[in-house]
């Protein structure tokens, strides 16, 4: 399979500290790829830099085209990349529907109505709450809104940063079901998670990140079965 998205020797620094060093990874069309690792391993930094929120060095390609440093966040959204950030960054004092409308800011206006009803079909809770202010939603609903807003741009690659963070276990299960459904609908997904078990369960392939470097990679099922991974990320403490 050809890669939809790839990073080669991708490095992100905060001043003199390298938060992400020489990372290479790729995502093929229709695939869920996950990056697992401990808190502070550099996973969020990796996604933020891939989206253009942070400056980075290295080569980055999307749909066979190399992305330039000058392609800012807004240009990347236009190309079909979309990030659901860990902090969600919703428009709290605006309604749920306005948040979704703005999600389609760069999308083709003629497809708008169809996309909106798709998103409401996927997240019926958002339809119930559509006049409510985003800031008044519960944690799970906020995550749904953040994902719904991202889907409004009809992304070709959806990057999800810790979608399960701070959510009740039942809602985490819902969110992961929705992620699996999205792959079935043809969306490629790069998923960053601390909840390694849930991530490895739905992912096709996985990378393990430690202190800013990729230390292991392979099929998700193989990594999940690996005793050292199980000891570090799957069993203890959860």
């Amino acid at each position: 399979m050809t890669a939809l998205f790839s990073l080669d020797n991708f490095t992100v620094s905060y001043g003199k500290v390298q938060a992400v060093s020489d990372v290479s990874l790729n995502v093929a069309k229709g695939e869920i790829v996950t990056v697992i690792g401990a808190n502070g391993a550099g996973k969020s930094t990796l996604l933020n830099a891939a989206m253009g929120l942070l400056p980075a060095r290295g080569r980055m390609t999307f749909e066979g085209q190399e992305l330039a440093e000058t392609d800012d966040v807004e240009a990347r959204v236009g190309l079909g990349l979309c990030l659901v950030a860990e902090k969600r960054h919703l428009f709290g004092s605006m309604s749920v529907e306005d948040n979704l409308v703005l999600g389609a800011f760069r999308a083709d206006r003629s497809a708008f109505e169809g996309t909106l009803s798709d998103v409401y079909a996927r997240f019926p809770r958002l339809l119930e709450r559509r006049q409510q202010l985003a800031g008044t939603l519960s944690g799970g609903e906020r995550q749904m809104l953040a994902m719904g807003r991202a889907l409004m741009s009809r992304p070709r690659l959806l990057m999800l940063d810790e979608p399960s963070l701070g959510l009740a276990p039942r809602i985490v299960a819902d969110i992961f079901t929705i992620i699996a459904d999205l792959r079935a609908a043809g969306v490629s997904i790069l998923l960053v998670e601390q909840n390694a078990k849930a991530a490895l369960d739905i992912a096709d392939r996985a990378y393990v990140m430690e202190l800013g470097e990729i230390t292991r990679s392979g099929a998700a099922a193989t990594l999940a079965a690996d005793p050292s991974i199980a000891a570090s990320y799957l069993g203890l403490g959860h």
Binding site: H89, R106, M152
Partner: peptide
């Protein structure tokens, strides 16, 4: 209007606005 909402969105959350493609 969409542009008006985009201006409000920029005011509410700048990063959120950038993430949906509003310059």
């Amino acid at each position: 209007t969409l542009m008006g909402k985009a201006l409000r969105a920029t005011a509410v959350n700048r990063i959120g606005a950038r993430l949906v493609g509003i310059r």
